[in-house]
């Protein structure tokens, strides 16, 4: 009896909105869910790890220099006796946040700037394009280096903002040209004639249609940012020694990758795992957004 009641009562709510559909399609994709789980575990490890670790990251064990992994030092020790497990976890904390935040910020900025420039055209387009061209011409590493004294001693999160600010231009150009061809399509015109404001047209119609570009861009950005951050550290900006990031650990460990593999391997694997998880999630999101993709479609009941 109750079954019948729910069926009748559901009449008004049997429509799935786009958000609900995308969620469903994403959750149906096993790899994507695996990606989310891996990433969640990485965070858990990075922020919960210190509670289990026997050593602190800035603690040096002078009795164990360059030791391979053991019961005392799970991931071995570095040249000066630092615990590699503690260092990797310390690096992971920084790099996860830097990588993900920069990717989300720079792709988001690219989407908004490119989307509005392409859709609105005219003055908005010209000024955004001028800004893009100017930023592309300026050597971003140099600017960050010049500005670094200003921010010295402040939180390293400033660094996230700066990296994002110099990483969005190329994608914004791609998004702009994609939206320029989309805005001539009838469905955009239909929305205009319904009186839908520009802001909603960009977010509801244009950006979802360039979602694949944005997702791929964000996915690639995660790995690239983690690695490029090391370059900036050389210039005396960003994560400074003795503090570590995954990037700096990898950079230091590469030289002894064959002789003392544990210096390099664990940080390297952490990076690979992060990037892999992110690209699984990216793939899942892309398929969830794209109605033409077969992967996340419900298997038809007939077959």
């Amino acid at each position: 009896m109750t079954v019948v009641q729910t069926e009748v009562g559901e009449q008004a709510s049997d429509r799935l909105t786009r958000g609900a559909l995308i969620r469903l399609r994403f959750l149906r994709n096993r790899l994507a869910v695996a990606g989310v789980v891996i990433l969640a575990m990485m965070f858990l490890l990075a922020f919960g790890g210190p509670f289990f670790s026997k050593h602190r990251w800035d603690e040096l064990d002078f009795l164990a220099l360059l030791q391979p992994p053991s019961r005392e030092h799970w991931f071995g020790t570095s040249q000066i006796g630092g615990d590699v497990f503690a260092l990797t976890i310390r690096g992971l904390q920084k790099s996860l946040i830097i990588g993900l935040l920069v990717a989300v910020f720079s792709t988001g900025l690219a989407a908004i700037a490119g989307g509005f420039a392409g859709y609105l055209g005219g003055k908005v387009d010209r000024s955004v394009m001028w800004l893009i061209d100017a930023l592309l011409v300026l050597p971003s590493f140099l600017i960050i280096a010049v500005m670094s004294p200003l921010y010295r001693g402040r939180t390293w999160l400033v660094f996230v903002v700066l990296l994002a600010a110099f990483g969005w231009m190329v994608t914004a150009r791609i998004v702009r040209s994609a939206t320029m061809s989309l805005r001539e399509r009838d469905f955009v015109r239909a929305a205009q004639y319904m009186g839908v404001p520009a802001r909603k047209i960009v977010f509801r119609h244009l950006l979802p249609n360039v979602a694949s570009i944005l997702i791929i861009d964000a996915t690639l950005n995660v790995g690239a940012t983690i690695l490029s951050e090391t370059g900036l550290s050389y210039l005396g900006f960003g994560v400074q020694p003795p503090d570590v990031s995954l990037g700096s650990l990898i950079a230091e460990g590469t030289a002894s990758a064959l002789t003392y593999p544990w210096l390099f391997m664990f940080a390297g694997s952490a990076l690979i795992l992060t990037v892999l998880a992110v690209s699984f999630i990216g793939d899942g999101l892309r398929d969830a957004f794209d109605p033409g993709s077969n992967k996340s479609k419900k298997k038809s009941k007939a077959t």
């Binding site: 786009r18 009838d186 239909a190 319904m194 509801r204 119609h205 979802p208 249609n209 109605p291 033409g292």
Partner: peptide, 16 residues
């Protein structure tokens, strides 16, 4: 061309 390929039709009809 007149329907957004990435918007479920329920949302498209609800848009106005």
């Amino acid at each position: 061309a007149s329907l957004d390929p990435r918007l479920p039709i329920g949302d498209a009809i609800a848009e106005p």
